[in-house]
């Protein structure tokens, strides 16, 4: 039985009277691809921020990569990688400058950054672009590179917040193959997406509505439970019941 790399119980985050995240309880196993779905405003971003050590929960308990989410936010940050659609790399730095910057932030030595960068660029067949400004790269390339940069320090978990929005269908699939590969090498992937076909690529999926997790299982089990032919239908039937907007 694989160990849990994320384990949270009754996690809450209130903003004044507003319960952004309302008693969520779940585990994520090491090496798992975990899909974190929910409508806009369901509380996903607030939940991810707590799991990444960026904000402390109002109440509840749990650990991420072995560190307490109530107390050790700073330690959590060292053991995770993060990328989002909105922010991933600096447009006005070159590919290599971005790698050096993020490697430095994650505490890698110059030697380590150099070695890892070459490895990554070879793997992406992207060595010729080492001195290209990131801003001039196509979005799909940027996102693949960003995933590698978020994994530069070999984190145990990588959080991906809508990593493939707007990306073409071919590159979107290449991106998911990188996720599969990372997962098969033991990295845990925690991912949000608005593409419902991508939910099917996950080992397990949770669906958040109004701050709570309303469903959590493998895509196949969820479809069986909801008598649906695709995750899209499961998502719709749950999200339609949402009381609150964003």
């Amino acid at each position: 039985m694989k160990e849990n790399i994320i384990s949270v119980k009754e996690l809450c985050k209130n903003f004044g009277k507003f319960k952004a995240v309302d008693r969520i309880t779940f585990d994520v196993k090491r090496g798992e691809i975990f899909g974190f779905l929910g409508a806009n405003g369901a509380g996903k971003t607030t939940a991810i921020r707590m799991l990444c050590g960026l904000s402390y929960p109002t109440s509840g308990s749990g650990t991420v990569a072995g560190f307490d989410v109530m107390r050790n936010g700073e330690k959590i940050k060292h053991h995770i990688g993060y990328m989002s659609q909105r922010f991933s790399l600096y447009d006005d730095l070159t590919v290599y400058e971005n790698m050096k910057l993020f490697g430095g932030i994650y505490g890698l030595s110059k030697m380590q950054v150099e070695r890892r960068s070459v490895e990554i660029l070879n793997q992406l067949q992207f060595k010729s672009e080492i001195n290209t400004l990131v801003g001039s790269l196509p979005l799909g390339w940027k996102q693949k590179l960003a995933f590698c940069v978020a994994s530069l320090h070999r984190p145990e978990i990588v959080f991906l917040d809508e990593p493939t929005g707007g990306v073409d269908p071919v590159t979107r699939r290449q991106f998911w193959e990188m996720i599969y590969k990372a997962s098969s090498e033991g990295t845990t992937i925690f991912v949000t997406t608005h593409y419902m076909d991508e939910a099917e690529y996950c080992n397990r999926v949770s669906i958040m509505v109004d701050g709570q997790i309303k469903a959590l299982d493998s895509p196949a089990e969820l479809k069986k439970q909801f008598n649906a032919s695709a995750i899209d239908e499961v998502f719709r039937s749950l999200a339609r019941g949402a009381k609150r907007g964003e």
């Binding site: 409508a39 806009n40 659609q85 707007g166 608005h194 899209d232």
Partner: peptide
């Protein structure tokens, strides 16, 4: 509909 969830999109 970019960045909008599946329900709002439909």
């Amino acid at each position: 509909t970019t960045g909008v969830d599946a329900v709002s999109r439909s």
